[in-house]
């Protein structure tokens, strides 16, 4: 994240209902906790070579119900470790959404229909805006509940709990 809190990168565009098996296949996640190794397989069944093409700071942009399927926390974890700075989707499956925030990966709900592969984006979480630099328009983000913003600000649930000693609603 840049010093001013604005995330910048290119869009990698996916469709609706990207499930957690596509993000990280079950055949890998059961055998290791090594996130770097798992991150090499991120998205491989739907976009082979994704983990090699993605550059630090890039965004995953998707349609509805992103992250549906299993509760595997490895899903947001491998996305984060692949170098992705945030996932933008029209909507998220709830367990993925919660896991993403808990692992410090911003999950941004907004209208993604106008974003094309390769578009340069700027995401300003604090002000709730997504700017499509390539196409010259700005979107509003559906705001997160305060507790989730606080967890995200601490970099994830572990650091949040270490700091606060419990949940502050």
């Amino acid at each position: 994240m840049a010093g001013n809190g604005i995330l910048r990168g290119r869009a990698h565009v996916f469709g609706d209902d990207v499930n957690t098996d596509y993000i990280i296949s079950g055949k890998y996640k059961f055998r290791t906790l090594d996130v770097e190794e798992l991150a090499r397989h991120c998205m491989e069944d739907v976009d082979p070579g994704f983990s090699e093409r993605v550059r630090p700071g890039d965004f995953i942009v998707a349609g509805g119900n992103f992250g549906c399927g299993s509760s595997r926390e490895q899903a947001p974890l491998v996305i984060k470790h692949a170098g992705v700075s945030a996932v933008l989707a029209r909507s998220f499956a709830r367990i993925f959404f919660r896991n993403a925030i808990n692992k410090g990966l911003p999950a941004v709900e907004c209208d993604t229909s106008g974003i094309r592969a390769g578009d340069e984006l700027e995401v300003d979480l604090a002000r709730g805006k997504v700017k499509n630099v390539t196409r010259g328009y700005t979107l509003e983000i559906v705001p997160l509940p305060a507790v989730m913003m606080d967890i995200l600000a601490e970099g994830g649930l572990t650091d949040y709990l270490r700091k606060h000693g419990g949940f502050k609603l």
């Binding site: 509760s71 926390e73 367990i95 919660r98 896991n99 808990n102 692992k103 649930l157 709990l161 949940f167």
Partner: peptide, 15 residues
Amino acid sequence: GVGSTDLAAAMLSGK
């Protein structure tokens, strides 16, 4: 269903 970190938090506090 929840993720692993949520389970860890609940194992610690019960909440």
